[in-house]
């Protein structure tokens, strides 16, 4: 096997089985509480007695939606962790003016390569935006992956 070979396996699941089980449990429990609240409230003739079940139904909805929120927050956290692992800790900040300039190329500080602004290799990283000549002056070379040429990003 080539030493440069990479083991790229199928994408791991975004959510683990316990995450999925927790979501199903909470949403299921919420749905059951909602159904039971409706069933019990419809058998009563007094509004005052029914209000307990209205509260219970709200609790059921809250339970299910809390499961949903937990699921989404967990997923977002996992995505952020993988993003950080692949693209680094730096927050996305293209430049002081808020984004890559149209006539410039981007580079990660102290990196050897400069890229087009939309290159996947620099997406989400803290970037230095400069003209091609400025990058080349500090010894950076054009990224062969995104091939930053003046025809790609108009000067």
């Amino acid at each position: 096997m080539n030493s440069a070979a990479v083991i790229v396996e199928a994408d791991p699941p975004l959510w683990s089985q316990p995450d999925t089980a927790r979501l199903r449990t909470l949403v299921g429990a919420g749905a059951v509480v909602l159904g039971a609240s409706w069933f019990l409230a419809s058998g009563l003739a007094e509004v005052r007695q029914q209000l307990v079940f209205v509260s219970l139904s709200l609790f059921g909805a809250f339970l299910g939606l809390a499961g949903v929120a937990g699921w989404l927050i967990g997923g977002r956290r996992t995505v952020r962790a993988r993003t950080r692992l692949l693209l680094g800790d730096a927050p996305a900040a293209a430049s002081a003016s808020g984004g890559p300039v149209a006539d410039g190329f981007v580079a990660v500080p102290d990196a050897r390569w400069f890229h087009r602004a939309d290159c996947l290799l620099v997406k989400g990283r803290d970037l230095v935006v400069s003209a091609r000549a400025a990058h080349e002056a500090v010894g950076r070379r054009a990224c062969p992956a995104c091939a930053p040429t003046p025809t790609v990003v108009p000067a």
């Binding site: 440069a4 990479v6 790229v8 995505v79 996947l120």
Partner: peptide
């Protein structure tokens, strides 16, 4: 989120392919 996860998978695969080239 799954869409983003899949894109990260593509980035990981791309970085993996470029790892030996000294680009990463």
């Amino acid at each position: 989120l799954r869409d983003e996860w899949t894109r990260l998978g593509s980035i990981e695969a791309t970085l993996g392919q470029l790892a030996g080239s000294g680009l990463v």
